[in-house]
């Protein structure tokens, strides 16, 4: 099972792959996805990169309810 730190690291890598100009600050489980500084299209691209790396698919309806990094961690654990 992946730790929260690992998932945050993975998320940051995915953001860099999508757009290396985005500056990311300190992130915790409470960090809201909407506060990361990505627009909605970029957020979905980041999700797409993570899906490829983890070889899973985040169901659409689960994505609609994701709020923060903690939710993302819970979802990834549920799927893998």
């Amino acid at each position: 099972m992946r730790t929260e730190e690992e998932i945050i690291k993975l998320f940051k890598e995915a953001v860099r792959e999508v757009d290396h100009n985005v500056k990311l600050g300190e992130m915790t489980a409470k960090t809201e996805l909407s506060a990361v500084g990505l627009d909605s299209v970029m957020t979905m691209e980041v999700i797409g990169v993570m899906e490829e790396k983890l070889n899973v698919r985040f169901p659409d309806e689960d994505l609609a309810t994701l709020k923060n990094m903690g939710d993302l961690t819970t979802l990834i654990r549920k799927l893998s």
Binding site: D60, A64, L66
Partner: peptide, 9 residues
């Protein structure tokens, strides 16, 4: 359109 956005329900 369906609910797609993250956490803006």
């Amino acid at each position: 359109y369906p609910p797609l956005a993250l956490g803006k329900l």
